[in-house]
Design a protein around this nucleic acid. Structure first.
Lengths: 260, 260
DNA sequence: AGAGTCCTTGTACGGTGTACGAGACCTAGT
DNA sequence: ACTAGGTCTCGTACACCGTACAAGGACTCT
């Protein structure tokens, strides 16, 4: 029989989800449970960040020794992979179905996806690192696919359009959550942090050279409202661009299909 | 006077680039040098990945003790931040200028950016984690901005369009490099790895349910050519979508500008 | 009472980033 | 020539990390 530890040591093992899963539900004295472990991990990740999470601290949070966790999980990485998938589950897929046409549904999904990434700043690096093939991530993927299908694009173009939209959302969510958590870490409001960054740039001639064409814009933005509003407004407009682009491509494909 | 170590310990310190930099060029017996350290770090990161890089191993590579590195650098994180910026420097900005209109320039830049991310699989998580405000990253940002400016979009819309394009490139590069390095780690070709993943899905009823609408497509793709070609083709088409979207928005904005 | 299964723990190993202080070298000033 | 100070390297040490291993407690079944 292959032991759990051996499986985990296999360098070709790409994901927890590609293993035959054992439930190991917790009838033990500590009332432990993989769900409870993952939930605690998520809480700690949200509060302290990815770098600060350790098995010992996580165990302490659950009033247990570090090694107890290994009964439910093969490695620390597995906990994080479970956490990632659990957080994918926070995206409200029912709300997507409730929305109108594909444009609305895509918007609702994109907004909720981004909100999720920003709410959990550790998610972006993790989601970029692991194969996201847990049940919740797959469900989100399926919903994205469903949404794109209704655009009317030919099937072999749909994955490409999916990428255009949701890789953008991922990238955007990444830098936004990055920015926000840096600001929080520095103990500043987002507006303050933005202002300080601009000021630091302005003092450095090297930056000014490369960014010269941008400075007017940066100033204008700094004085123009809260940073949060700018994030929202830019995101919205980018989605407009994507919707418009898809519409054009649909028209083109159908024109090509009918022989011009 | 503020010592280097104290600066590094400051929790509000957001980036190496926001500090007054001391050059510390290496006239020492070991011929060390910050550039040499960073170059070695990049080589090791490319070969072994982010998780395997340690100060001791990096130092050994340079025939030096771990602590020697700290003369040139405050923390390990700083080395990585320098490495990230150095790799941004690999993007060929001159080639962008040589290309034709904004569509071509945007394409050239996007392709090279993606190539860079795929060539250095550790880049995506790192670029997502650090503020990318080193000189090379800023230069790339400036070039992106220059490119987008020529679309004719009003200035306050340009950052949004920049996001749409280059956050997409970042996201796309992230999953592609992720996929490729997983395949390599598993000792398979990309086609083999793709096939194995599909097979694993097919054996799991839970996956099949969520992905049911996609399976035909996945099969079609698996039989349709090399995975590498698919990556390229999808990326290209997504850029088409983005270009088309920007063109539409330009037309709309100018229509609105002239009062319809 | 004994055996077996499930869960938790203590201990220990080899690794990590890096603080601190002691040197080795070189260069400048007297 | 001799010293002083700056520049660079190293050895040691600390606290912490992920986790292998084996021993134990609790509970169930026979």
């Amino acid at each position: 029989m292959v032991k759990a530890a051996d499986r985990a040591k296999n360098p070709a093992r790409s994901s927890v989800w590609l293993e035959t899963r054992t439930s190991r539900s917790g009838g033990g004295p500590a009332g432990l449970d993989r769900d409870r472990i993952v939930a605690a991990a998520i809480r700690m990740l949200d509060e302290e960040g990815l770098a600060k999470l350790s098995m010992r601290k996580l165990a302490a949070e659950l009033n247990v020794t570090a090694m107890s966790l290994y009964w439910y999980v093969d490695t620390k990485d597995d906990i994080i992979e479970y956490a990632v998938d659990t957080v994918y589950g926070e995206i409200d897929l029912a709300a997507v179905d409730a929305a109108g046409d594909w444009r609305d549904r895509m918007r609702v999904l994109a907004l909720d996806y981004r909100r999720m990434l920003v709410r959990h700043p550790w998610m972006s690096p993790c989601a970029g690192y692991y194969l996201n093939i847990g049940p919740h991530a797959i469900a989100v993927g399926g919903k994205i696919q469903e949404t794109i299908r209704d655009t009317g694009l030919p099937m072999d173009r749909q994955p490409s359009a999916m990428s255009a939209v949701f890789q953008f959302v991922y990238g955007y969510g990444t830098i936004q959550s990055q920015f926000e958590s840096r600001a929080a870490q520095a103990g500043m409001s987002q507006n303050e942090f933005y202002g300080e960054s601009i000021k630091a740039f302005r003092d450095d001639p090297q930056f000014m050279e490369a960014l010269e064409p941008m400075t007017d814009l940066l100033d204008e933005r700094a004085s123009h409202g809260s940073v949060t509003e700018i994030w929202d407004r830019d995101f919205d407009y980018a989605l407009d661009v994507l919707v418009a682009g898809i519409e054009v491509m649909v028209a083109r494909e159908s024109a090509a299909g009918t022989g011009t």
